[in-house]
Computed example of a mutant assay.
Amino acid sequence: MSLLSVQNLEVVYNDVVLVLKGLSLNVKKGSITTLLGANGAGKSTTLKAISGLLEGEDGKATSGTILYENEPVNIQSPEKMVRQGIFQVMEGRRIFEDLTVEENLRCGGYTQPAKNFSTNLEKVYTYFPRLKERRVQLAGYMSGGEQQMLAIGRAVMACPKLLLLDEPSLGLAPLLVEEIFDIVKKINKKEGVTVLLVEQNARMALSLADYGYIMENGRIVMDGKGADLLHNPDVQEFYLGLSHGGEKRSYRDVKHYRRRKRWLG
Results as ranks from 00 to 15, higher is better:
Gln148Arg: 10
Leu163Cys: 09
Val156Leu: 05
Met142Gly: 07
Leu170Arg: 10
Gly145Leu: 01
Asp166Ile: 13
Gly140Ala: 10
Ala173Trp: 01
Gln147Pro: 13
Gly171Met: 06
Leu138Glu: 15
Pro160Leu: 10
Arg154Asn: 07
Glu167Lys: 10
Glu167Asp: 13
Met157Gln: 13
Tyr141Asn: 15
Gly145His: 05
Pro168Ser: 15
Pro168Ile: 05
Leu172Ile: 03
Met149Tyr: 02
Leu163Arg: 12
Met142Ile: 06
Leu138Gln: 15
Leu162His: 07
Gly145Trp: 00
Gly153Leu: 01
Asp166Glu: 12
Leu162Asn: 11
Arg154Met: 07
Leu172Met: 04
Leu138Thr: 12
Ala173Asp: 01
Gln147Ser: 10
Gly153Met: 04
Gln137Val: 11
Pro160Glu: 09
Leu164Gln: 04
Lys161Ala: 09
Ala151Asp: 05
Ala139Asp: 04
Met149Phe: 02
Gly140Asn: 14
Ser143Gly: 12
Gln147Tyr: 00
Met149Asp: 02
Met149Lys: 00
Ala151Ile: 03
Met149Pro: 07
Leu164Ser: 08
Leu170Tyr: 11
Gly144Glu: 00
Tyr141Ala: 15
Cys159Tyr: 03
Leu165Lys: 10
Glu167Gln: 13
Ala155Gln: 09
Leu150His: 05
Ala139Gly: 09
Gly144Lys: 00
Ala155Ile: 05
Val136Phe: 15
Leu164Val: 03
Leu170Asn: 13
Cys159Arg: 12
Gln148Tyr: 03
Ala173Pro: 01
Glu146Pro: 01
Gly140Pro: 11
Gly153Gln: 10
Met142Lys: 11
Glu146Cys: 01
Asp166Cys: 14
Ala173Leu: 02
Cys159Trp: 03
Leu150Gln: 05
Arg154Lys: 14
Ser169Val: 08
Met142Arg: 10
Pro168His: 08
Lys161Glu: 09
Gly171Arg: 04
Ala155Tyr: 06
Leu170Thr: 14
Leu170Trp: 09
Leu163Tyr: 06
Asp166Thr: 14
Ala155Thr: 04
Asp166His: 13
Leu164Lys: 06
Gln147Ala: 07
Gly144His: 00
Arg154Gly: 01
Gly144Ala: 00
Ala139Lys: 07
Asp166Asn: 14
Leu163Ile: 08
Leu164Phe: 07
Ser169Arg: 06
Gly145Met: 01
Gly140Glu: 12
Ile152Val: 12
Leu150Asp: 09
Met149Glu: 06
Met142Cys: 13
Gly153Ser: 12
Tyr141Met: 14
Tyr141Cys: 15
Lys161Pro: 03
Ala151Cys: 06
Gln148Asn: 11
Val156Gln: 01
Glu146Gln: 01
Glu167Val: 14
Glu146Val: 02
Leu172Cys: 03
Met149Ala: 03
Gly140His: 09
Asp166Pro: 13
Arg154Cys: 04
Gly153Thr: 03
Gly171Thr: 08
